[in-house]
C-alpha cells in the first residue's frame, strides 16, 4: 500500500475541498469494505484518503416529497431495517438483503455500493479496468464465466452495485456535491460504460462525492428484485433483475426492467419494458418479456448460461411484482 494522508472532514464542503483534480490525488473512504483491499493490492494508490463517515449531512434516511432521501453514508443494514422500505420499495429491500455478509452490511454504505469498483479478477490483479493486453481483451480470451453478456464497449466487467438495478428501475436520482455546489443525476445516467482504463464506471469527477440517493414516491409502483445466486452466503449474484411497474387495473401501464451483473452498468432492457405495456402479467407474459429482455445478449465464451439466468431473474421478478407466487 502506498503511504497516504488521512483526512477526516465533518462537512460536505470541507470534504470536497480535500479531493483533487485527478483520481490519484484522493479517494473517498466510507465503509472501507473495499477501498483498503484495492489499496493493499495497489489497484488504487491515492495520495490522500478522505473519510466521509463523520459528516452528518450524509447520514440518515428521511421522507422527502412522497419518496425517500437516503444519505450516502447510510449503511446497508440501516437501509434494510428502514420501516417502510420492504413495503414500498421491496425491490430495493431485496437487493440490499442480497448483500448477505452481516459484516459488510454493517460497515458498507449505500454510496459505497453504487460507487464500488468492479470485481473483475483481471482488474483486481492489476490488468486495468478494461483488462486489455497487447490489444487483446484478457476477458474475451480468458476466464469470463462471471463477466458481461451485454454491451458494445471494450469493458467486459459487470457493475458490482447491488442496489444499482433497483435504483435505475425505480427512477432514483443521485445527489452529487462538488466545490461548485450540488447537482442531481438520474440513476440511469450515473452508471457509465468506460471507453478507456483512465475513465471511471460512474459519473463522478475526482473532486465530487455522492451525498444522497433520492427515491421517488412508489406507493403505486409494483416493484421487485430477483437475484440468481450460486450461494446464499456472501457471494455475488450471477444475474439479477429489478422491475418497476405502474398498473392500470390489472394491465401494465409502464414498465422498467433493469438487469444486474450482466453489463458494465445496470442494464436497462427497454424493449422488454415497452413490450409489457398493456399486458396482464402471468407466467407466459413474464417468460416472453424475459426473452425480449435478453434478445440482444452477446455472451462470451464461458457465460452463455448467464443469458438463461438473467431470463429467469426477469421472469421471477415480474411475477413477484405482480404478486404471483412461483
Amino acid at each position: 500500500m502506498q503511504a497516504f494522508e488521512y483526512a477526516n472532514p465533518t462537512s460536505v464542503k470541507e470534504a470536497v475541498g480535500m479531493l483533487g483534480a485527478t483520481w490519484s490525488d484522493a479517494a473517498v473512504l466510507a465503509g472501507g469494505t473495499d477501498l483498503l483491499s484495492l489499496m493493499k493490492d495497489y489497484v488504487m494508490s491515492p495520495k490522500r484518503v478522505v473519510n466521509i463517515k463523520n459528516i452528518k449531512e450524509l447520514q440518515g434516511i428521511s421522507a422527502s416529497g412522497g419518496g425517500l432521501r437516503i444519505g450516502a453514508a447510510v449503511t446497508i443494514e440501516e437501509l434494510v431495517n428502514y420501516a417502510s422500505l420492504r413495503t414500498n420499495y421491496p425491490s430495493l429491500h431485496a437487493a440490499a438483503s442480497g448483500i448477505t455478509s452481516p459484516q459488510i452490511r454493517n460497515m458498507g454504505t449505500v454510496g459505497g455500493d453504487i460507487c464500488q469498483r468492479p470485481r473483475c479478477w483481471y482488474f483486481r490483479q492489476g490488468h486495468g479496468l478494461l483488462a486489455m493486453h497487447s490489444g487483446k481483451s484478457l476477458v474475451t480470451n480468458g476466464e469470463n464465466k462471471y463477466h458481461a453478456i451485454f454491451g458494445e464497449g471494450p469493458g467486459k466487467f459487470v457493475s458490482a452495485s447491488s442496489l444499482g438495478p433497483a435504483l435505475v428501475a425505480l427512477g432514483a436520482k443521485i445527489k452529487i456535491a462538488s466545490a461548485s455546489g450540488e447537482k442531481e443525476v438520474d440513476a440511469a445516467k450515473f452508471f457509465l460504460d468506460p471507453k478507456s482504463d483512465a475513465e471511471r464506471e460512474v459519473a463522478l469527477a475526482p473532486n465530487e462525492i455522492v451525498t444522497a440517493i433520492m427515491l421517488p414516491a412508489a406507493r403505486n409502483v409494483r416493484n421487485a428484485t430477483y437475484e440468481v445466486r450460486h450461494k446464499d452466503a456472501l457471494d455475488w449474484p450471477l444475474a439479477t433483475a429489478s422491475v418497476a411497474l405502474t398498473m392500470d387495473g390489472n394491465k401494465v401501464k409502464s414498465a422498467q426492467v433493469v438487469l444486474g451483473h450482466v453489463a458494465t452498468t445496470p442494464w436497462n432492457a427497454a424493449e422488454a419494458g415497452k413490450w409489457l405495456v398493456g399486458k396482464t402479467i402471468d407466467a407466459d407474459v413474464a417468460a416472453k418479456a424475459a426473452d425480449a429482455a435478453l434478445a440482444g445478449a452477446k455472451p462470451l465464451s464461458q457465460n452463455i448460461y448467464k443469458v438463461q439466468l438473467a431470463k429467469v431473474a426477469v421472469k421471477r421478478s415480474l411475477l413477484a411484482a405482480a404478486g404471483i407466487k412461483v
Binding site: H133, E143, K231, D235
Partner: peptide, 25 residues
C-alpha cells in the same frame, strides 16, 4: 481453483471467487 491460460495465474486466489459454503449453504 480457476487457472487462466492467458495470464498463467490463479484467477480466484481469494475468499471471494474461491467459493466456500456459508452457514446458509
Amino acid at each position: 481453483r480457476i487457472m487462466d491460460e492467458m495470464t498463467g495465474r490463479v484467477m480466484n486466489a481469494d475468499m471471494e471467487f474461491y467459493k466456500l459454503a456459508g452457514i446458509s449453504d
